[in-house]
Design a protein around this nucleic acid. Structure first.
Lengths: 126, 126
DNA sequence: CGGTATCCATATCGATACTG
DNA sequence: CAGTATCGATATGGATACCG
């Protein structure tokens, strides 16, 4: 990893990982992916029911960015009242195993990490 | 994934993955981990040289949170001028393979994702 | 039903100056 | 050398009201 590559990777636009992490790193994306993985196809308000603590706005924003990245497919049924369905794409399916690895790692280490945080709080408190 | 679990996982404090992602999802953490993995042991200003675009403040903040989570070990040599060394812990070493998987996935899919984003821009522009 | 629009609170990030 | 303090800009997230 020489200076030039590091310089490039410090730039969000040019760094592949930052491009991806900036999306899955936000507050709701991961949860939406996991719910859609389990339920396969859901309408907007069904998703809202599963993830009741999200605001309508943030659910909309999250779904738009997932759709833009080609991770979620949005199907509109032209009827009244409108019906819109969301489901994962193959691209999202290929990402999900890595997410599950992260979930597993987190579950395994979260207790130790929280203990570390508390200890750090104590030793750094003046 | 029933309602109760979802409710819990919507809460950042109680969700293991969000706890971890909130850290590695921020702007500089991943880069610091990867540089420390490659260089093994570095002083504050050496890190700053490797990641030249980070501000002193953000490098300090990033290192503190990594130290708090037990992912980075900080060693102070009581001398003048001060000497402080940073290196990864075993906990961080166990996380790095998952990060490399994410890096690889991102590199593989970034072009298709960027193409999707451009296409999405076009079709949604009024 | 499936969203937008608007406004606001907070969190994150960065530039600059200063220090033991 | 290895930071901290302060201030300000920007990004993110949320509450509420409204709409085709």
């Amino acid at each position: 990893m020489d200076q030039e590559i590091l310089k490039k990777y410090s730039n969000v636009d040019e760094c592949p990982v930052r491009n991806v992490l900036d999306r899955i790193g936000n507050k709701w994306t991961l949860l939406v992916l996991l719910v859609l993985e389990e339920q396969q196809v859901l309408r907007f308000n069904e998703l809202h029911t599963y993830i009741s603590t999200i605001s309508q706005k943030m659910l909309s924003v999250t779904l738009k960015s997932l759709e833009a990245d080609g991770l979620v497919k949005r199907t509109i049924y032209p009827q009244v009242p409108p019906k819109v369905e969301y489901e994962l794409t193959a691209r999202a399916q290929s990402l999900l195993p890595l997410i599950h690895n992260l979930v597993d790692w987190s579950k395994t280490h979260i207790n130790a990490i929280k203990t570390s945080r508390k200890h750090y709080e104590l030793v750094t408190r003046k």
